[in-house]
């Protein structure tokens, strides 16, 4: 099966200059935890996830301690998030792994597993975002 047959044709996305508070709002309203970032032409240029936002809001020493249980409360994270709120997505988005419309399901599943992705955007020949494939889209197809 090809990407075009598996994908959700949902183009919900943000732009590089979208502000972080708008991203959080969109994630909350749409129920999506991962959003593709597209340029003015609708071409895929990055991805922003809940995980990216949480990680950016954590204290820098989190990487050493791997836990926030030592914090007395969430005030420090809240303060950092409020500082981030009016920063653009471009400062926090990551490079994105994408697939093309005619890529095969095995290749897509391999990328999702190997790169531990929740979803992968699909682009056309010119790089326009045309859909997304979630892990559950492949799982539900395979279990039928």
């Amino acid at each position: 099966m090809k990407a075009r047959d598996l994908m959700r044709r949902d183009l919900t996305s943000v732009e590089p200059d979208t502000l972080i508070y708008e991203v959080v709002y969109l994630m909350e309203q749409s129920g999506l935890s991962t959003l593709p970032v597209v340029d003015e032409e609708g071409k895929l240029v990055g991805i922003i996830t809940e995980h990216d936002l949480i990680h950016a809001a954590l204290p820098e020493y989190f990487d050493m301690l791997h836990s926030i249980s030592f914090l007395p409360n969430l005030n420090q994270i809240q303060k950092r998030l409020k500082e981030m709120a009016f920063r653009p997505v471009s400062e926090y988005m990551k490079e994105v792994t994408s697939v093309h419309l005619d890529d095969e399901d095995l290749h897509i599943a391999d990328l999702l597993i190997r790169k531990r992705l929740k979803q992968i955007p699909v682009v056309d020949g010119e790089g326009h975002l045309v859909g997304v494939i979630r892990r559950i889209d492949i799982l539900s197809r395979l279990i039928r």
Binding site: R9, D10, L11, T12, L26, Q29, S30, V130, G131
Partner: peptide, 8 residues
């Protein structure tokens, strides 16, 4: 089969 591009 409709592609959706909505503002939430």
């Amino acid at each position: 089969g409709v592609t959706a591009n909505f503002v939430w």
